[in-house]
Design a protein around this nucleic acid. Sequence first.
DNA 1: AAACCTAATTCTGTATGCAGCATTCAGAAG
DNA 2: CTTCTGAATGCTGCATACAGAATTAGGTTT
Lengths: 230, 230
Amino acid sequence: MDAAKSLGAGQTEVPDRIERQSLHEAILTRLRDMIIEGALEPGTRINEGQIGAQLGVSRTPLREAIKYLASEGLVELVPARGAIVKKFTAKEVHDMLVVIKTLESLAAGEACRIATDAQIAAVRVLHDEMMACYARRDRLAYYKLNQQIHSAMVALADNAVLAQVHGQLQNRVKRIRFLGHEGAERWANAVAEHEQMMELLERRDAPALQEIVVAHLTRGWERVREGLVD
Amino acid sequence: MDAAKSLGAGQTEVPDRIERQSLHEAILTRLRDMIIEGALEPGTRINEGQIGAQLGVSRTPLREAIKYLASEGLVELVPARGAIVKKFTAKEVHDMLVVIKTLESLAAGEACRIATDAQIAAVRVLHDEMMACYARRDRLAYYKLNQQIHSAMVALADNAVLAQVHGQLQNRVKRIRFLGHEGAERWANAVAEHEQMMELLERRDAPALQEIVVAHLTRGWERVREGLVD
DNA sequence: AAACCTAATTCTGTATGCAGCATTCAGAAG
DNA sequence: CTTCTGAATGCTGCATACAGAATTAGGTTT
């Protein structure tokens, strides 16, 4: 996926390719962020005229971005009525977490098998940073690093498809997870689980790691479930 | 979800809701079929003008459908150069099958746990039909029923997210699988595996079923791998 | 003959316009 | 006062138009 990856070690780095980004692409990430961060609440109808004016773009690329988001499952397309931000039922969230759990477990197993020590060390860095955030009770930074760590662990499996699918599901639950302001002791538990996961990854103890990962995400569901209304 | 569902039992059935389908939706399924069936070969650049004229639609809804396909992973978007039908490397196909394997294994376990007898019987019907197709060596019909059975088994897990993700990945490998014209004994093996799977599902023997499912798909990879050039 | 530069053409990306459906609001009937 | 009907408004869906990038073709030079 990365251009730098395919270069020989001794070769001079090719200057970064000019990043060209079409408008619909930019709109896509913008809209996605708006949904994830809650600027567009679930159930909201996306008014193309209004959003388009707000972002200073015409409706055409905006509509294209919306179609993409629909496939990602973040919005729902209703014929002749446009797009509405998808509202997830408790069951749907549960279903997502079941799948995410399975995917991360798979990733964990693969990671233990094929990740390099350097890659694992990189995750350790993130982990330690996250622990620092926990120490000073910085929820937002903790949350962001948490996401990064989960993604990084999945990336260790060296399976682009797995990473893509996981990322897609992760995006859907991001907003919900973020809302889940867990209590002090639940948070402490999550931190302890992460500590274990990190150690098991470094020991490359796949079975134990997978067990913890599954347990961690199962508890994640419990942490989230209370914050759901329906 | 279904309107009929919310009606009292004695009430007269409301006539089916008018099925409306927007143009970009119709184009979407059409394009997807064209890709899966090989009418649009991997690596082909999608010429919007040409395809649009061919389908008798303007570029706008066509482009919207393409964006959707891009998110599904069937098409790749190259800035300022449009969309090209995604070409999968052997590794990518392998990666997909690894994920599919995991998802189907998960589904199998859930299915044993929660599927009703009636639902399992419905799969049995498909299975027997498929066996009839095998008996008369009807490859195309066998292939289609095979897909249906795998999807049906996933559906038994009663997890819409799982089904959606699985379906998406299934779509990506469909064309490749279809190409994989396996030899007689490989085919016989696959059939035997299906026979076992069906029996284990009826016995609700989750562990054994999951094992066979994984083995079946691993062999599926072997069956496919030879047909790949790169 | 091969390579390169330039002009013409094709195609993508975005904006705009228009028709038709959905929603809303006001007025009339019960 | 409530309910129904119909017009008015707003929005979506699709087509078309236009600007700019990419590709191709052709001609020139080495």
